[in-house]
């Protein structure tokens, strides 16, 4: 009898041990799913390389980005610019500066603008959306009114094309790096606000919120401890995706000449703008910064999409 039960227990344990280590929260499970997804790995590698390059740019760059060392070898009239060679791996630009150095240093600007603008957009948006969502959930009719007003304004902001909004902000505040950050950040605000509020609204209708209410938990605690943490998944995904958009938009603003760019701080979008006149002679002037923008944005997008999949409740067992 005991031999039988032992054997059954052992077999049952073997079966149960398949995936059940126990004591892991949802974030850990999501991370495990993320690790298994090749899309996430690819995205993470790109993002990591980009961040490392940006941090170590000054060390990695072989020359000063604004040193016009090889100006003598270039000629804009005949469209002759030295291409890739031992000293300059990606060649020399129209002012005789090392392309590789400029690209490497340019990553700093992109990272800075991307991160600061997204943080700005996220914090303002999350505040707005959070307040709106909390009002809706907490304060009955009056709360619904506050939410309605906030969200109508938000919808108006959302209706303005983001680049147009950024251009307006940039022209209003004048040209500087800060302007670009604010301009790009402002366009993200309504997106985050809408997202967090919608997510909170969905969570506030869930059964476990009613269960907490039935326990007698205070509404403010329910919002902070249950609704908010469970609403952050989609927002986190949006943060990652926003970094990609922010980098592209920042490049776009610089391209339009609205960035605070000087020669010592090259920026990918500005490099693209500069390349326009020489496209017939040196396509690579445009190809390098464009590739850098695309690959970086792709990295963040891949990571964001993979994160979305990993956090999808439908995929949970």
């Amino acid at each position: 009898m005991s031999a039988k039960t032992d054997r059954i227990d052992r077999l049952a344990e073997l079966t149960a041990a398949r995936a059940d280590e126990g004591g892991h929260g949802l974030w850990y499970e999501a991370f495990k799913r993320l690790r298994r997804n090749p899309m996430a790995i690819a995205g993470a590698v790109i993002v990591l390389v980009f961040v490392l390059i940006a941090i170590l740019a000054r060390v990695l760059a072989p020359y000063e980005p604004d040193a016009q060392t090889w100006l003598g070898e270039t000629s804009t009239a005949t469209m002759t610019f030295p291409g890739a060679r031992a000293g300059n791996l990606l060649g020399v630009d129209h002012l005789g500066r090392d392309m590789l150095s400029r690209l490497l240093i340019g990553s700093q600007q992109s990272l800075l603008v991307g991160v600061v603008a997204t943080v700005l957009g996220f914090s303002a948006g999350a505040l707005l959306g959070g307040v709106s969502g909390a009002c809706l959930g907490l304060f009955g009719t009056a709360g619904r009114r506050v939410d309605a007003v906030l969200m109508r304004f938000n919808d108006m902001a959302l209706a303005v094309p983001s680049l147009l909004l950024a251009v307006s902000v940039a022209t209003l505040l004048g040209q500087s790096l800060i302007t670009v950050m604010i301009a790009v950040g402002v366009t993200q605000v309504p997106v985050f606000a809408r997202l967090l509020r919608g997510s909170m609204l969905a969570q506030s209708h869930s059964d476990y919120v009613m269960a907490s209410t039935a326990l007698g938990v205070r509404k403010s605690r329910i919002v902070l401890n249950h609704i908010l943490p469970n609403s952050l998944g989609p927002v986190l995904v949006q943060v990652t995706l926003s970094l990609a958009t922010a980098i592209i938009e920042a490049a776009g603003l610089s391209f339009l000449g609205l960035g605070g760019v000087d020669a010592a701080h090259p920026e990918w979008g500005f490099m693209l703008a500069e390349s326009q006149q020489y496209l017939s002679g040196a396509l690579r002037f445009a190809v390098y910064p464009a590739t850098a923008i695309i690959v970086t944005a792709l990295g963040f997008t891949l990571l964001g999409e993979a994160l979305r999949e990993a956090l999808d409740p439908k995929l949970r067992k």
């Binding site: 004591g23 929260g25 949802l26 974030w27 869930s206 059964d207 476990y208 009613m210 269960a211 907490s212 039935a214 326990l215 007698g216 938990v217 205070r218 605690r221 401890n225 249950h226 943490p229 469970n230 409740p313």
Partner: peptide, 29 residues
């Protein structure tokens, strides 16, 4: 007056462990 819900999955906060779920009411009161 306490309540037991229909769907035990959706009526439990997925980000709370069992100890946290059970102590929440105690803390509240």
């Amino acid at each position: 007056l306490q309540m037991v819900f229909q769907d035990p999955m959706s009526s439990l906060d997925p980000r709370q462990n069992v100890e946290s779920i059970l102590s929440e009411g105690l803390a509240t009161h």
